[in-house]
Nucleic acid binder design. Structure first.
Lengths: 221, 221
DNA sequence: CCGGATCCCCAGGGATACTG
DNA sequence: CAGTATCCCTGGGGATCCGG
């Protein structure tokens, strides 16, 4: 990227990660851990192969990512974040919280992947009752399964399924996301097509991680 | 900007502010308050007038900024941030903290403005001794004056001069910034051309605002 | 002088095809 | 699978010009 030529840490940061797709590549590596080229390509629907290739080269040169050869059974190269790359997490988190305000808009053609929903829960929600016992929620959105665990004040999540969850919810991504972030109550979510089975009371423990951003209306205006 | 087409709050956020110059425009309005076209242009050295014009139009449409007609004596239009625009502050702050690691590199041609240094102090530094009495520092870097006040755990700053500061420091931007962020000690800063007069002991109260980013080496490698 | 609009040119991004 | 190569087109940089 062409430099902004300004002695300002925001501008210099953008000199490095301001290019198109760059922050999303970091997002993928942050969420998925070390990835193969094809994993990244799948996690970034819409990116052109040459662009991904060139971005990876630039990011490696900037020492945000490093290539490593995977152990024998796989025998391919893996791309992983360096310390500098991982240090972008707070910035991505803040941007993700800000971007929540645009998640209400329904764009049917948008791609959707399970791990995006997973980080949505883990990064963007807080447990309001840290003293309460841990609970497990089996989430499914657009057919993609995610497990959310509320444990001692923290909200954690991963892609996949679990046995005997305290609660199961299923529905379109927008409604499920609103429910997980505490921005939608169950009534509202059910109107948007969510079905819930089990201890629906645990949902009241979830509140949006604020950064004093204030709540956002996830229902389309 | 062309949409990434991903149902992810980071991607949707970048759909709005991911274009070149956009975040820097928000930075200016955040630091300077409502601005005229020319003020923005001066605060964004390097931007082409047509780009600024088109970005302002897009940002207004996205409801991040609003135009208002200034009161009679000025009689020009002012651009100011809306609530959504101001909500970007945490993201810009996080990015600015991350970008600090690139502030060590010396690029003689980079532009430098006083208010960038001012936010550098206020956003990126913390007072380690909130109980201690308030102190005032008169800073000057590259001829541009900034006042930094350490008051009850908070670090505040503004462009300009004050009377009877507890400490005066003067030197090249890189060294002054390192000193204000607690990343450089006085000895190191003096080697980079800083001169200090007054209560140099108050500098020990400044520490970098972490976001667990860890300290950064501001001296060139 | 302020607040842009217009024009031209080039670099960077998108789509697809091709190769080790 | 992991990229490269190619072509095309849009979007950004830079200068100039114009109305208020």
């Amino acid at each position: 990227m062409r430099s902004y030529g300004q002695y300002c840490s925001i501008a210099r940061g953008l000199d490095v990660v301001g290019d198109r797709w760059t922050l999303l590549i970091v997002r993928e590596l942050l969420l998925q851990g070390p990835c193969r080229f094809t994993d990244l390509r799948n996690g970034l629907p819409g990116i052109a192969a040459n662009l991904l290739s060139s971005r990876l080269r630039e990011l490696e040169q900037a020492e945000l990512i490093s290539r490593e050869d995977a152990p024998p059974p796989v025998a391919t190269t893996l791309y992983g974040l360096t310390e500098s790359g991982r240090a972008l997490e707070p910035a991505l988190k803040a941007l993700g919280i800000w971007g929540l305000r645009y998640m209400a808009e329904d764009r049917p053609d948008d791609a959707f992947q399970a791990h995006w929903l997973a980080y949505g829960a883990a990064w963007l929600a807080t447990d309001t009752d840290p003293e309460a016992p841990p609970v497990t929620i089996q989430v499914q959105a657009d057919g993609k399964p995610v497990v959310v665990e509320i444990v001692g004040g923290r909200v954690e999540s991963r892609v996949g399924r679990t046995e005997d969850p305290d609660l199961e919810i299923d529905g379109p991504p927008r409604a499920v996301l609103g429910l997980l972030n505490g921005l939608l109550d169950l009534d509202g979510a059910e109107k948007l097509g969510v079905s819930a089975r089990g201890r629906t009371d645990v949902l009241s423990r979830l509140r949006p991680a604020s950064t004093e951003a204030g709540p956002v209306d996830l229902v389309e205006r």
